[in-house]
Amino acid sequence: LVRYRTISKIPQITLNFVDLKGDPFLASPTSDREIIAPKIKERTHNVTEKVTQVLSLGADVLPEYKLQAPRIHRWTILHYSPFKAVWDWLILLLVIYTAVFTPYSAAFLLKETEEGPPATECGYACQPLAVVDLIVDIMFIVDILINFRTTYVNANEEVVSHPGRIAVHYFKGWFLIDMVAAIPFDLLIFGSGSEELIGLLKTARLLRLVRVARKLDRYSEYGAAVLFLLMCTFALIAHWLACIWYAIGNMEQPHMDSRIGWLHNLGDQIGKPYNSSGLGGPSIKDKYVTALYFTFSSLTSVGFGNVSPNTNSEKIFSICVMLIGSLMYASIFGNVSAIIQRLYSGTARYHTQMLRVREFIRFHQIPNPLRQRLEEYFQHAWSYTNGIDMNAVLKGFPECLQADICLHLNRSLLQHCKPFRGATKGCLRALAMKFKTTHAPPGDTLVHAGDLLTALYFISRGSIEILRGDVVVAILGKNDIFGEPLNLYARPGKSNGDVRALTYCDLHKIHR
């Protein structure tokens, strides 16, 4: 019993810090008490220290592992850092350059016999395009090294910054494609005289377009951006097909006994025919423009016929181009109408809503002055909100995010209106959640004399007048207030005048 009563005193000691020596009952000389009392004092002292730490809000209350900052290894790049964003855009520009100039170089340097010394005699450094290609190869190699040090988000939505895990993730992902696209074939085969082989191998750079397509997928929600990307894709495919079309004609031209190829026909049409040795002929500019003209006309199913396939190889390629053109029509131009419709969806919704308003007016036989006010209010409210119901949009977000959005939407009023000066951010967040926005066209009466005042109004834009009878008592403008002081009276009061809008007004109100 003594032991039980001794232990039962522990909660009292913990909360009230009572010393055991003052209790005459606990001072009985028993061996059990002498053993338990020192333990009680020690526990009391420890609990006292913990309570003191909690009340003082000291940093040592938290466990040590929670006080440590997340460790980022040296030379690790955050995937959302500004440097990584700028670097990704730079790589994107280099990939676009590669997609345009690599097929052009591979096709127009394929057994090209233009006048001038061969590239091997001039030297590697004197070729501007080769120098640019070398810079692109170096940048792609540097990009691989950067990807080995860039964080990523795993399946659990955690940012991984450990170098080993980053390397394994990159090896399992895009490393092989990036490595093949970054191989400097110019340096590996330079001086061997195989410019045709170098041009063909350099087309491996186009593998990076797969990554670019995935990154550009984030802009699919913007109709104008999608339309622009589709047109660029169409032009890029036409450019690639033009390079292939020229390569076919250029390879067949020296081996044909009869002059029936499209390059021969082009030379005869523009007065620059090929001679018996295969030299001469149109310039590279004429060849490229004509090839691009043929691919565009074939892809769009126009086909004027002034550039036509004559050999079997050219006919087979033309059939493939027609098939590609039909697929592009289905996948690209078939979506253009939907994209344009999405661009004008706001206008369509406006006309639909206006039609419903006019049908309501016609069905209920609203008189002319009231009908005009109804239409003007709808037009003004639509121009202010673009038909978007803010309350319906915010309803799907958590309250903390709703408060931040409301604070942002009402920031101008909260910053410049005098009653809100000096208020804490928590108070402003709470008030912003209570605001209701209303609009009024010129001549609209917001409050009639004798109406119950259940709200306090803040003028965000425009001006109003307060009338008693036919006498203008006051004219209020931006950041002015009218209405009933909230919670100042037990019952809502009545208006002693009319409140009429002089201009288009936007008002925020808080109800009782």
Rank of each mutant, 00 (worst) to 15 (best):
Met256Arg: 12
Val136His: 01
Val393Leu: 08
Val212Ile: 04
Lys215Thr: 03
Leu129Arg: 05
Val212Arg: 03
Lys215Asp: 03
Ile361Trp: 03
Leu188Tyr: 08
Ala403Cys: 03
Tyr222Arg: 04
Gly396Lys: 03
Leu431His: 01
Phe294Gly: 01
Asp268Tyr: 05
Ile324Met: 07
Leu227Ala: 05
Lys436Asn: 10
His380Phe: 10
Asn275Met: 04
Ser326Gln: 07
Cys122Gln: 01
Asn306Cys: 03
Pro118Leu: 14
Asp404Thr: 01
Val447Phe: 04
Glu376Asp: 07
His239Arg: 01
Gln353Ala: 09
Ser337Lys: 04
Met322Cys: 06
Gly281Ser: 01
Tyr344Pro: 03
Ile141Tyr: 01
Ser301Cys: 05
Ser194Phe: 15
Met231Tyr: 12
Leu207Cys: 13
Gly422Gln: 13
Tyr350Gln: 07
Arg371Met: 03
Ile361Tyr: 01
Phe83Asp: 03
Leu266His: 01
Ser326Phe: 04
Phe304Gln: 03
Gln127Asn: 06
Lys425Gln: 11
Asn265Glu: 15
Asn335Ile: 03
Pro163Leu: 05
His169Asp: 04
Glu375Thr: 10
Gly164Ile: 14
Tyr293Phe: 11
Asp143Tyr: 01
Ala440Phe: 10
Leu129Cys: 04
Ser297Met: 03
Gly346Ser: 10
Met251Pro: 01
Gly303Tyr: 01
Gln402Ser: 02
Ala423Leu: 08
Arg349Tyr: 12
Lys436Trp: 05
Arg362Leu: 03
Pro117Met: 15
Thr113Arg: 08
Asp257Ser: 11
Arg373Glu: 03
His351Val: 03
Leu94His: 03
Met433His: 03
Gly116Phe: 14
Lys436Val: 09
His408Asp: 01
Phe228Thr: 12
Ala242His: 01
Leu370Ala: 01
Glu195His: 15
His448Gly: 09
Ile146Cys: 07
Pro118Thr: 15
Phe294Gln: 01
Leu207Trp: 09
Phe360Thr: 02
Ser220Trp: 12
Ala403Gly: 10
Ser283Ala: 01
Trp87Ser: 01
Ala155Trp: 09
Asn306Thr: 01
Lys425Ile: 06
Gly164Thr: 13
Gly193Tyr: 13
Ser161Lys: 05
Phe171Pro: 01
Ile91Ala: 01
Phe101Lys: 07
